[in-house]
Simulated scan of single mutants.
Amino acid sequence: MLSYAFIDQLYFGELPCPLCLMQRIGFVIIGCALVLNIRCGAHSSHYGCGIVGGLVGMMVSLRQVLYMFCLAIQCLVKLFWNCIFMLGVMLAIPVFYWD
């Protein structure tokens, strides 16, 4: 998934959003923890660094999903109120011209 994002960014010229960049930082932290474990041996601080990187990526991705969800909810609320308004207008027009 991450390799496709890099290919899409470099080949097609698509710039990632800031939240995507922050998720990539979480991946890089996890990768650094893996490299530290391989080069310096297994140590609890390396695992802690990997866990922190995973938590950073998880929190940013949760924020991104909630942001998109809230935008969808706002659009649905606007649509609902527009429908109610139009229904009120359609019901009010015959009342004004009833004579």
Rank of each mutant, 00 (worst) to 15 (best):
F6L: 13
I38F: 14
D8L: 12
A42H: 10
C20E: 02
D99H: 06
L15D: 03
V60S: 06
L10N: 04
A42Y: 15
N82W: 12
F69C: 06
G54Y: 04
G41W: 01
V60G: 02
Y11K: 08
L19A: 00
L15W: 04
R63N: 09
L2I: 09
L76W: 05
A72H: 10
S61G: 04
G26C: 03
V60P: 01
H46R: 04
W81K: 14
D99P: 09
W98R: 11
F6W: 08
F85T: 13
L36C: 06
C83S: 15
C49R: 00
F27Q: 03
L55W: 08
I7G: 04
D8R: 14
W98A: 14
P18E: 08
Q23G: 04
P94W: 01
V65T: 13
R39Y: 14
Y11C: 05
M58H: 06
Q9D: 06
Q23D: 04
S45Q: 08
V35T: 13
C75Q: 12
K78V: 11
G41I: 00
S61F: 03
C70M: 09
S3N: 13
V28K: 04
C17D: 12
F6H: 09
N82Q: 15
L55Y: 07
C49M: 11
A33Y: 00
L91R: 10
C40H: 10
A42G: 07
N82F: 15
Q23F: 03
P94Y: 04
S61Q: 07
G41K: 00
G54Q: 03
R24L: 07
I29M: 12
C17F: 05
G54F: 08
L10V: 07
F12G: 00
Y97L: 07
N37S: 14
